[in-house]
């Protein structure tokens, strides 16, 4: 087997992410896809608020840092100026499914030709482990210390299911990064999402079930297992829109 080289689109520097966190893997996968498609020079990314707020430092292409939740609106502005570019947002669950719900829904509704990488780790990482819109029932966080109780805190949002109902969204898939096999599948999905954008078909989103060992108070190995055994029970993997899409 050949030795995997460091992707061109990823700076060769150490990230600030915690051990066992999925962000680093997601970054690498995105960079590999961009390299393989040969689009590094025409890609413009939108950085979010949250742990990956400064991921523009890790990628080698142009990026804009956006306010919390607003990345799809910023991406809309960029894409409408440079329709030939590949524009993607990188957003967490608080960003996309709480404060930025309106922006993501309407970017999809307009069929903006952008791609969203949605990192769902069921918690607010950067602010020290608060309840997220995707926090599971019973999950303990710093703002649901007794576990999320639907009677009090409501239910987790299934964003892939929601967005797949929107006509402007053409490709929606939920993937996971808890093991190598799933990481490879995730890469395939992300590649397809970028190809959908290259073909000018409409809005695409890949929801990535991710780990947050620090705020979950777990060892990295246990965190990966929790994604597999618990998160994937509620958040079913699969293609929610565009199964038959050939790109």
């Amino acid at each position: 087997m050949p030795v995997r080289l460091h992707p061109e689109s990823l700076e060769n520097i150490t990230t600030h992410y915690c051990p066992g966190c999925s962000h680093g893997i997601a970054h690498r996968v995105i960079a590999e896809v961009i390299d393989e498609l040969g689009i590094e020079g025409s890609t413009i990314g939108i950085s979010p608020v949250g742990c990956s707020y400064n991921n523009y430092k890790y990628f080698t292409f142009d990026m804009l840092q956006a306010a919390h939740g607003r990345a799809p609106a910023v991406a809309t502005g960029v894409k409408r100026v440079h329709p030939e570019s590949i524009v993607f947002t990188y957003q967490g669950d608080g960003d996309l499914a709480a404060i930025g719900t309106a922006e993501i829904i309407h970017a999809a509704a307009r069929g903006e030709k952008i791609t969203t990488i949605f990192i769902n780790n069921a918690i607010y990482g950067m602010t020290s482990g608060q309840m997220a819109p995707t926090t599971l029932e019973g999950q303990v966080t710093t703002t649901s210390p007794l576990g999320r109780d639907p009677k009090v805190q409501g239910f987790p949002l299934k964003m892939s299911e929601i967005l797949s109902q929107i006509d402007g969204a053409v490709y929606i898939e939920r993937v996971s990064m808890h093991d190598v096999n799933h990481i490879l599948k995730a890469k395939k999905a992300i590649k397809k999402a970028f190809k959908v954008q290259l073909a000018g078909l409409g809005f695409s989103m890949i929801e990535v079930l991710s780990t947050c060992p620090t705020n979950w108070r777990m060892k990295p190995v246990d965190a990966a297992a929790w994604v597999k055994d618990t998160m994937m029970e509620y958040y079913k993997l699969g293609v929610y829109k565009g199964e038959d899409l050939e790109v």
């Binding site: 306010a67 607003r70 502005g77």
Partner: peptide, 14 residues
């Protein structure tokens, strides 16, 4: 809010 952020994106893109 979205409108001003679209301005941010478009103007940021030159």
């Amino acid at each position: 809010i979205a409108a001003i952020n679209m301005v941010y994106g478009a103007a940021g893109a030159g």
